[in-house]
Design a protein around this nucleic acid. Structure first.
Lengths: 195, 195
DNA sequence: GGACTGACAGATTGCAAATTTTGTCATCCA
DNA sequence: TGGATGACAAAATTTGCAATCTGTCAGTCC
């Protein structure tokens, strides 16, 4: 059926397509094999289980999102408070856009998050590191009050959960969420600021 | 089977018992009628539907919780920041205790919250009013920065969602949740404080 | 006459059999 | 000889029917 040898990237793309079409509940590795024109046994040569395949797809999907975020929030001579505001705001906006525009892959992400898979955990670690870096800069510049940057970043992450935690995705449909997130971010910015 | 006339309170207590024993998924109005020793038709004389019955039970359960909260957080010459800290902390502790010690009724509450029933909404309004009242006092005393008390209370409520929103109940089992909530409350207190 | 009953229709849920899917592996073949 | 295949057992899901439950109401009983 197919000429070139089967490689993991090709399988991931096919799986992404199947997940997007059928969603995490209905997608099967038989569907993936069908799209690729191979037997399902061949898929298992490259991925040890359906769960591993699903995780790899979401891993790649999140990686692309990180690049987007990094591009959107690059250092442009702004102060740490401005950068923190920008990071949080774009982080939320990107999550909301993914949930709206790519609902099935987002639902798959949500399943992994609910199962405490390592993939969403690593993604959270990345986001925490982004926040942490700005907090470090802010403390160094005197814009933020002194304290443990990791702990402060975690508190910021928890306080904004409603706007980035996939468990709250249903609430993101409300038009008020923009104003609500702005209010919480403002509250936090005043909280971290030096006095 | 029973002598005294059937009244709503008796039905509510029986329903509470049934919900506690079987949980929101398995409890039936036939079970309630069985406990009361009446036919299920009699239950429908006092409550128009199973949903109404469930809501009334949770309404009463939440009302008792409010009294507890009011008792625990009464004005004792503390400053507004101290009172806000106390309100939030005991509010979380009470939620966590309910989830732990009364899991089936808490699960029922969670179902109503997920369905956007008016009962949990009213409960949220009550909590917001409690926060709001302290914010008003804090602004008046000069402890908190000026602003719209309602909006500030809402932002505080949203920022602490992880510690009181029933959707996060699973995370309350972690022993870290105490420290995490303290960190977020500290962040918020610094956020509302006048500078 | 007002509170209660129980038969009833329609909706929902539970359950067991049938089907599909997952993951393995002996075998094939280019 | 390395990658692909498809038959297979075990696990998970779907299906379709039976049993249960919800909500109504005509009738019964103090």
């Amino acid at each position: 059926m197919r000429r070139e040898p089967l490689d993991p990237e090709t399988i991931l793309s096919a799986t992404e397509e199947v997940l997007r079409r059928h969603g995490p509940e209905k997608a099967t590795v038989l569907d993936v094999a069908r799209v690729l024109g191979v037997s399902h046994g061949s898929v298992y040569r490259h991925f040890s289980s359906k769960a591993a395949l699903r995780e790899a797809v979401i891993q790649r999907w999140l990686d692309r999102g990180r690049e987007e975020l990094a591009a959107a929030v690059q250092d442009s001579g702004l102060t740490p408070p401005e950068r923190l505001n920008g990071l949080l705001t774009t982080m939320f906006a990107m999550k909301w856009a993914k949930a709206r525009e790519d609902p099935e892959l987002f639902a798959t992400f949500r399943v992994l998050a609910a199962e405490h898979s390592a993939v969403p955990s690593a993604h959270i670690a990345f986001l925490l590191a982004q926040i942490s870096a700005i907090v470090v800069d802010g403390i160094a510049s005197g814009d933020f009050a002194a304290g443990d940057p990791e702990a402060i970043a975690l508190a910021i992450f928890h306080a904004t959960g409603r706007f980035h935690d996939p468990a709250h995705a249903a609430e993101w449909r409300s038009p008020q969420v923009v104003a609500e997130s702005a209010a919480v971010v403002a509250l936090i910015l005043d909280g971290v600021r030096a006095r």
